[in-house]
Write a protein that binds this DNA or RNA. Structure first.
Lengths: 341, 341
DNA sequence: TCAGACAATGACACCGGTTACCAAGGCCCG
DNA sequence: CGGGCCTTGGTAACCGGTGTCATTGTCTGA
């Protein structure tokens, strides 16, 4: 083919300009859909672009524009299904845009956590980052991003301080409703498998349980609460603690599905039938909820939609206010709950 | 602080050069650890860099070097845990390097699949991409990446044609061993829940089952094979098909854990006890295997390590040959298998 | 007829790094 | 003591885009 660009390498804006007999600037105008441009010129250039298979170099663009069309996703989350849902949500938002997604999982127990995140932000010069819970619950990160001049949105499970940078669901109300269902089924002693200390989501879900119990004058003392850390194993340990009680509960609300699965596991090991001998309710509605036996009654929160909204806030900051910030949850009844025997 | 760079923005190499009284070039030499440089000069510059908190702009670097320190991960995988393991493995490899990871999930049934991937590669100008199964099993992608001049490594479950771009495990042998264990437990009729058509992994695992059965003179006719598509639901359907057989199998090998979980599910619905009435073996050893009841006997393949190795091949192409390419699997006995009653 | 408005396009500097090439200074050697 | 070599640092051009401003041509209205 005649008129090909210099051997090797991809065609550049210069090649397009030369072959179509216009200046770089005009080609740039075509690419950026500048309105003040003759239609004939535009078409002429577009033909050459198509012929050459020209694609603008994003690095050069980022350099000239002093902005980088890349979002970052920072998380330390034990649950694979949830992380993937978050990722999918962000990807929904950037589909068919020029944005791309960089993922950056971290270890929240690492002493270098802050340095690590700082390095990531400084090195990559991202357009913005999204932080997932539980990291998002730490206000120090917000301060760090402000200091670094990096846009951010926090995914939170409860009201944090700064609505502009926040996408959230109301866990407390959701748990209140779920525990209310257990109470309506006749359960009086309802155990709580709590999330780890320092997690706002854990705190919110615990308070939801407490509020529901108190509203019905039911016991909500510490002996009915067992702490877990959102892992399957910790759910098993918490279940052992609750089922060893002299007056053992007839139902358990676990603060996430994985721990609920652990509860079901332990009940089964002890020869108890779920839901006949023990009703179990989880939270999150991750894949495991529908996969274990019996299928788990749980609460769904729209992770993917929320993540999409968070990304939208970063991509279109001017419309960030119009973007929804508080998302409703949904109670999902399945087979792990039954009326008290 | 006196001598700060121009208001706003991050410090650039020019700021560092000016403040330390040397040229850009010298600063560049410091950054790139050029050996021919006076120690005193180096230290002087390093002090200024630390003081300013200077970090080189990766876009400018990418532009000048004509190489971009970003890897891409392309996949269409129904299993969250596996995808996350792959991601983690790649991230293991790039930790403490200047590389970053861009994820790009796709829909393999989409008619725009090729265009989509092509656009991704052309737009991002990645240093290299890693393709996960089942996408990796399609040789047309290899051709596409070659055409686009993009480095790639395929994660495969079997011997494909091009060892330089490949990281794999030997599924067939692993399944032969797993089914061998079932046979040793006294099972004679062993059903197979096969993976979807067109998946090399599905084919390899089926052949592993067949070879084991044939080696012991056991039946391996089509009636003992039910096709699934690696999802939980399809595992249930396959289980129904197998358990409806007049002469029903006493054991089932499912080509992945999720489908195995579906088999266990159906068995339970029918009041069968696993493993007393039915032994079940899965494949992958994803989180679900240890989470369901009973814990699933399965085969583990070192996803994370393999992904790490794949990324290493891209980061250090000169040492790619030294990087391991074939990884051993491991049989993981748990509670879903028992001697034939 | 001509000034002024306006649309369309180009020239040129610049973003923040890199390399190629050259210059200057210190050292060795004959 | 002068020439060649090695070390070190500077200058300029370049990577592939973008912004600013100037230039050209055309149209309008006084």
């Amino acid at each position: 083919m005649a008129g090909k660009p210099r051997t090797g390498g991809k065609p550049t804006i210069n090649d397009v300009a030369r072959l179509s007999g216009v200046s770089k600037k005009t080609v740039s105008r075509v690419i950026n859909r500048s309105p003040l441009l003759n239609q004939a010129t535009r078409e002429k250039v577009e033909v050459v672009i198509a012929e050459l298979g020209y694609v603008p170099n994003p690095q050069a663009r980022a350099l000239a524009l002093r902005r980088n069309f890349v979002l970052g996703l920072i998380y330390d989350n034990p649950n694979a299904q949830m992380v993937l849902n978050f990722q999918e949500g962000v990807l929904d938002a950037i589909r068919d845009t020029e944005f791309a997604l960089l993922i950056h999982p971290v270890d929240r127990r690492s002493p270098q956590l802050f340095d690590n995140i700082r390095r990531f932000i400084e090195q990559q010069r991202l357009h913005g980052v999204i932080i997932l819970p539980p990291l998002s619950e730490n206000d120090q990160f917000a301060a760090l991003f402000d200091e670094l001049g990096c846009n951010y949105v926090r995914m939170g499970s409860a009201r944090l301080d700064d609505p502009a940078h926040l996408v959230q669901s109301n866990d407390r109300e959701a748990v209140r409703e779920a525990v209310g269902v257990l109470i309506a089924l006749g359960h009086r002693r309802i155990g709580l498998v709590e999330g780890p200390e320092g997690f706002r989501s854990a705190m919110e879900r615990r308070e939801g349980w407490r509020e529901a119990m108190e509203a019905h004058g039911l016991p909500c003392g510490d002996e009915l609460v067992a702490r877990g850390n959102y892992t399957f194993e910790s759910g098993k340990e918490a279940a052992i603690q609750l089922l060893d009680l002299a007056e053992r509960p007839s139902a358990v609300f676990a603060s996430n599905d994985v721990m609920a699965a652990g509860v079901v596991h332990v009940a089964r090991e002890r020869g108890m039938d779920v839901p006949q001998d023990l009703s179990v309710v989880g939270f999150d509605d991750t894949a495991i909820a529908a996969t274990i036996w019996p299928p788990l009654t749980t609460v769904r929160w729209p992770i993917r939609t929320m993540a999409r909204s968070a990304a939208m806030k970063l991509i279109h900051p001017e419309a960030a206010d119009k973007e929804q910030s508080l998302f409703p949850t949904e109670f999902v009844p399945r087979a792990s709950t039954a009326p008290k025997a």
